[in-house]
Amino acid sequence: MALSGGSDDGSPMMEMNMTPLIDVLLVLLIMFIITIPVATHAVNIDLPAPSNTPDQPPVDPIKNKIVLTPTDQILWNGQAINDNQLVGNLQQSLTYAVEPELQFEPEANASYDLSARVLNIIKASGVTKFGFVGNEKYRQFDCGGCAPVAN
């Protein structure tokens, strides 16, 4: 690094030239910024893998019904299945030329957690003909002996 001086009379220079030092530091800073890996944010979801078990209930090409029971069972057209079988049935239903209707009916005391999990699986499968059925059973609310409200 060169030293710079104020006079040209042959006396020694007393100040250091900072320009080359700053240039080298800026180049190093840029190299460090470029080599830092880009931070990516991802949400990993573990979906159940479909299983091809022979005891899997058949998929009706017209209409299929999923019922959730209070004992945390998933019933596909009346037969108990697990999450993997549900994924397999949903994928099989999408292979038909005309997608069959999928009806969803949780029973009165079915687990909310199970309902949310099954609905997430259905949503991830890409099923488009989907509907909630059986809601008419809950049209009249029974408060279990509460006093009527006077108008």
Results as ranks from 00 to 15, higher is better:
Leu86Gly: 00
Ser115Leu: 12
Asn77Leu: 05
Ala97Gly: 10
Pro54Gln: 11
Ile62Phe: 05
Val38Leu: 12
Val87Thr: 05
Leu94Gly: 00
Pro48Ile: 05
Ser111Gly: 04
Val87Trp: 03
Ala39Cys: 05
Asn44Ala: 05
Val98Cys: 04
Val43Asn: 03
Lys63Met: 09
Thr40Leu: 10
Ser115Gln: 14
Glu105Gln: 14
Gln85Gly: 06
Arg117Gly: 00
Pro106Tyr: 13
Ser125His: 14
Lys123Ser: 14
Ala42Ile: 03
Gly126Ala: 15
Asp83His: 14
Ser125Glu: 12
Asp83Ile: 07
Pro50Val: 01
Leu90Asp: 01
Pro57Tyr: 11
Gln73Tyr: 10
Ala124Phe: 13
Val87Cys: 02
Asn77Thr: 02
Asn120Met: 15
Ala39Pro: 00
Gly78Asp: 07
Gly78Glu: 06
Leu47Ala: 07
Ala97Val: 11
Ala108Leu: 06
Ala39Phe: 09
Ser93Trp: 09
Gln103Val: 07
Val118Arg: 14
Asn120Val: 07
Pro61Thr: 02
Ala108Glu: 03
Val43His: 05
Leu102Tyr: 08
Tyr112Ser: 00
Gln56Arg: 15
Asn120Asp: 14
Asp46Tyr: 06
Asn52Gln: 11
Pro48Ser: 08
Asp55Ser: 12
Thr69Leu: 11
Ala97Ile: 07
Pro50Met: 04
Asn44Glu: 06
Val118Ala: 09
Ala49Gly: 00
Ser125Thr: 13
Val87Asn: 02
Ile74Asp: 00
Ile74Ala: 01
Gln85Tyr: 10
Pro58Asp: 07
Ser115Asn: 09
Val127His: 07
Ala124Arg: 12
Leu119Ala: 14
Ile121Asn: 08
Glu107Met: 13
Ile122Cys: 04
Leu119Met: 15
Trp76Phe: 13
Lys65Ile: 10
Gln73Thr: 02
Gly126Asn: 15
Leu114Pro: 01
Ile81Pro: 00
Arg117Gln: 10
Leu94Pro: 00
Lys65Pro: 02
Leu94Tyr: 03
Ala116Ile: 13
Gln79Pro: 02
Glu101Asp: 04
Ile45Gly: 00
Leu47Tyr: 14
Leu119Glu: 10
Gly78Arg: 13
Thr69Cys: 09
